[in-house]
Design a protein around this nucleic acid. Structure first.
Lengths: 135, 135
DNA sequence: AGATAGAGTCTCATATTGAGACCTATAACT
DNA sequence: AGTTATAGGTCTCAATATGAGACTCTATCT
């Protein structure tokens, strides 16, 4: 992506929108958003931020994700270099997942999103109450 | 949510994880993430950040969103107080959508995510190439 | 008179996800 | 010896979510 260093965030947002509209499928931002859009991605990253964990442990920690989606989410994250997969040759074999430095680094912007949500939780709640009230 | 002012971001992340695990469905963060997880939400917010726009204009600007999902996304955003809906009594009537201050403010953390994506796009691309190479 | 526009809604086809059975091998329990 | 449990998945079938596109109503435009 071209020099973003001299642009304001709004400018970059605008540029981003244009890329989306252009339908560039290999646009990195669209890619990330689709990723976050998988919903489990974020949860898995947060869980792994606590400690490296094995497959079933992750499953127990995130009770409402199905094995199917857990597998898929982990594969996607591995593929994108955010999670590392290590197989231990025990019987039965165990597999440990951990965050790579790249995976760690994405926790920061995700954290910003979470902080925003906490900060404005009350505003949103109020908006909903009002919205329902009007029907 | 309890005092977050004295906690580190990691602490907050941990707390967040616990809330998720507890399955609190009305947890504001889970709510926001599910929202972002709708994928169109982010695109619509970005589009509206350029200018208030009417329904069909939004549809043309985001060619790959269906009317169905556009309607639903806008309703959700309206419900959460991030987007305002104004009906003009023209013939045929037109409807303008715009960001509320709350909607504007969420663009900042979303922008942080986008900046991260641009910054690490090359890392991710490289990771993918390697992943494919190994099969 | 017929086409067009705006903002949706409705239905049906398709895609994504969830629930849970099943697989392999080994080790511990009875 | 036979049963059961465990780890990390995969596979199938059912439920849910999304996309594509027809249809609505009225007032201008051609």
């Amino acid at each position: 992506m071209r020099d973003t260093g001299t642009m304001s965030r709004l400018d970059r947002l605008k540029m981003q929108r244009e890329l989306h509209v252009a339908g560039l499928e290999n646009c990195p931002v669209r890619n990330l958003l689709d990723h976050v859009a998988s919903k489990w991605t974020t949860l898995v990253l947060m869980e792994l931020s606590q400690a490296p964990q094995r497959f079933n442990a992750l499953g127990r920690a995130l009770p409402d994700i199905s094995k199917r989606m857990l597998t898929q989410t982990l594969r996607d994250l591995e593929r994108d270099g955010m999670v590392a997969r290590r197989v231990f040759d025990t019987k039965p074999p165990s597999v440990e997942y951990s965050l790579t430095p790249l995976g760690q680094s994405v926790l920061q912007p995700i954290g910003a999103l979470i902080d925003w949500a906490n900060l404005h939780a009350e505003d949103i709640r109020a908006a909903r109450v009002q919205f329902e009230a009007l029907g």
